[in-house]
Design a protein around this nucleic acid. Structure first.
Lengths: 198, 198
DNA sequence: GAGGTTACTAAGCGCTCGCTTAGAATGGTG
DNA sequence: CACCATTCTAAGCGAGCGCTTAGTAACCTC
């Protein structure tokens, strides 16, 4: 594997392999997917995968890391967008829901293929997940402190709000009656009720 | 595989194999688990598995079916336990949450290993899932019709209530600060808020 | 305790897996 | 167009997979 990380052609091939891997992992799971599946879907021979990646697990790790990082960024930006807890909650629940519905394929890997990561990679991913959880919990606690939210148990409310968003990746398929925007709008109202901001 | 379905010794062995399979499937996924894993954990040789089951997939199917059936039963009983939509919702959310927390291992297979089922088995399981979804949706609609619930969108509210319960299987580990009962009580309050019954 | 049914194992078959190797195309640069 | 790094493939290796077969151990009945 030569260092071709900044050459356009290699980049395009990497992207094709990643995209094929995302589809396959989301559909059949990491262990249910073969390197031949991925390579064939990317229009290459199985050996080509190893020109660009160390292993099948590395492919999963790269997908998982970039997915987690973009989710964390989304959450941080949404929550930082307003000092008003209600506005911040609206924004983060909306964006989180849209993202998990629109990219339910990628989000499925992010949330349901953690066990297939190597211990080192899993540890790294886990710290990103903790940061996401902490952001949501801090927002709920801030809202309670500001008198904007009213909950019997802030931790449970935070878990529920996050859990609702994540689980979209499990049940949402682009084929139903709802657009990602529909789900997001419905979930914003639900989140406001959960934290007692209505 | 002789027909030993009602002989106590064979039943005990079946149960050991099922239990070992549940643990392994929940931990590593269906495709990440080998028949040797299951047999060894059950204290037997790999061949013994095939004395009692046709295939590894059949083991998954039996686990998935019994898990789905007991969840459906739980939901039907809870919802049928009262004509009052608020009481019925309290009961179903409570029992559903307790079940998904206490048996998060089994519930993980039920909810996240569907793709590994054969097409025929998957179709059968899907009809059970639809009945569960319909029960919850009907309850929300009943509450709205009775003026006990107030929601802008009953379908979304029903999806959210069910989604919250299912996702417990993903995040709950018996090792945290909350008992299944704690989660259930918190989630009952949250569900009441979601449907606008507070 | 002999006979027959049931429960299990040792060994391994055929196949597919992740991954490697050796070498052939490909394409940018003088 | 010669040169050479880059990009890719044909072929296949060793390991582990799901599952089978042939035979042994355990148990129940009489």
């Amino acid at each position: 594997m030569p260092d071709t990380s900044d050459l356009p052609r290699a980049d395009a091939t990497r992207a094709r392999l990643m995209k094929a891997a995302v589809t396959a992992f989301a559909e059949k799971g990491f262990h249910g997917t073969t390197t031949r599946d991925i390579a064939t879907a990317a229009g290459m021979s199985p050996a080509a995968l190893y020109v660009h990646h160390r292993s099948k697990e590395e492919l999963l790790y790269l997908i998982s890391r970039s997915g987690h990082e973009s989710t964390l960024r989304l959450v941080e930006e949404a929550i930082g967008s307003s000092d008003d807890p209600v506005a911040a909650l609206r924004r983060v629940v909306h964006d989180f829901a849209v993202h998990h519905a629109r990219d339910h394929t990628g989000a499925r890997i992010v949330n349901y293929e953690l066990a297939a990561l190597s211990p080192e990679h899993l540890a790294e991913i886990r710290t990103i997940r903790r940061r996401i959880e902490r952001e949501i919990r801090a927002l709920v606690e801030r809202g309670v402190a500001a008198g904007a939210f009213h909950v019997p148990n802030a931790k449970i409310a935070a878990v529920a709000v996050l859990s609702l968003g994540i689980d979209i990746a499990r049940w949402y398929r682009g084929t139903g009656e709802w657009t990602p925007e529909d789900v997001a709008e419905g979930y914003v109202q639900i989140a406001l009720r959960i934290v007692g901001a209505a």
